[in-house]
Design a protein around this nucleic acid. Structure first.
Lengths: 233, 233
DNA sequence: CGTAAGGTTGAATTTGCTCAATCTCGGTGG
DNA sequence: CCACCGAGATTGAGCAAATTCAACCTTACG
């Protein structure tokens, strides 16, 4: 599989290149990581942050009992592990969903927040706030919505975010998350995710096959989710 | 009631005063808010951020169906609504748990991240990262732990955080959250919280009465919670 | 061809929720 | 002073959502 590399690069051509991003100037080296590999292992010491240039990844935490919670889904332009780098140790892991191209940003580039390029400071700040807004939204989603709504909300969020980086079109987008991954995002079991997906399919709201989500009834989807994209501004 | 004002101020005397914090220099005005009042209403436009100087508060989001999810608990030194101010509109509300003293930080003080005092930038950054770390931890807690463990973990977190600001001692601390609040933090119903509390009491792990939590068996509590305070560094 | 990862489905069970009644405790107004 | 009221806490009974356990299937891959 791994066809995503060519997929994303071809799509990226339509948009402002990432190299226009102020953060790009802090990248000292690029690195490629295959699909389903760890970029950063939980507990590891780390001195570089990674900016995701191409592909998709996620942050996760493992629990003593073997459970896993995915705490963020990362898209091109996102910083994978900024705070882990600043502290010097990761209290979470980062793994790829697709083959990824990463920019390495060494600690020295960012360590001194005082005398930093204003553009870079702003770029960091913006991302950090957005990260927080998404985390808050996830808390609401997991804490206060039943399974069907959770999944619908996630699909809505992914649509907006993927669209912003040119990876979604009107009728849907590629989904690299397995049902196990979805379960670990939503705080459900993969068995239950499977069942919820069945009911969504049965009610003609979505299709999900061959790694692609097709949204058949986006109005119904947003209605179920109670989706308001404001937090993704 | 509202005796917390004198409580907190007397306790604060033992520690480094907040006025030593770089952020304190950005405060142009102080404001007092009574217990159980909104500092910021969800959806409101806002041009000032608030730093919590004294007392406790929380961030929350209301859902269309009437539900509520508390997304953060705020302690002295925390910024209540930084990102809402930077965007100019609040996608969440902030309300007090106790009577609070707040410092108002107008947008102009922080708007320009480029040429900002390095100390202030660092202070903002530190808080923002910590905020994110706590939110991640809450995601894990709500997404992957059953009720008893969730509550235990929250109690552990509050202990560490309150201790850091001088509001907890060895055997426990004051709790201003109602069971309804606890439920909205943990993604449970208040009925279930009541039951979980009963089992914790029955197993001699805690006492909770008259607004004070007494930890009878802190080892058992941390064991149940799977608590690792690393994220609160 | 065998194996591993992911997905689906059923049955039994558990966890947590809803609905509802009851109780306590402050505060408020008569 | 006291009756009343509202917020919070507790408890029971019934129910719904989601989990666990398990079997089975498909597909990709070595």
């Amino acid at each position: 599989m791994d066809a995503c590399v060519t997929d994303t690069s071809s799509t990226m051509l339509e948009r402002a290149p990432l190299s226009a991003d102020p953060l790009f100037s802090t990248v000292v080296r690029q690195r490629s990581v295959r699909r389903k590999r760890d970029i950063l292992r939980q507990g590891e010491a780390t001195q570089v942050a990674h900016i995701l240039l191409e592909g998709q990844a996620y942050r996760y935490r493992l629990l003593p009992n073997g459970g896993r919670q995915i705490t963020a889904i990362l898209m091109p332009g996102d910083l994978c592990d900024l705070d882990a780098m600043m502290i010097g140790r990761a209290d979470y892991g980062v793994a790829t969903l697709t083959a990824c191209r990463l920019g390495e940003v060494p600690a020295e580039q960012i360590q001194d927040l005082g005398n930093m390029d204003p553009g870079i400071a702003r770029a960091l700040w913006r991302r950090s706030m957005r990260d927080g807004a998404i985390a808050r939204q996830w808390l609401v989603n997991i804490g206060r919505r039943p399974g069907l709504q959770r999944l619908a909300h996630l699909f809505c969020e992914l649509r907006v975010r993927l669209h912003a980086v040119g990876l979604a079109n009107e009728d849907g987008y590629p989904v690299w998350l397995t049902q196990i991954d979805l379960a670990d995002v939503l705080g459900l079991t993969h068995v239950h995710v499977s069942r919820v997906l069945q009911t969504m399919r049965a009610s003609q709201i979505i299709r999900l096959e061959d790694g692609r989500l097709t949204i058949l009834d986006d109005h119904a989807l947003e209605e179920i989710a109670g989706f308001d994209p404001g937090y993704l501004a």
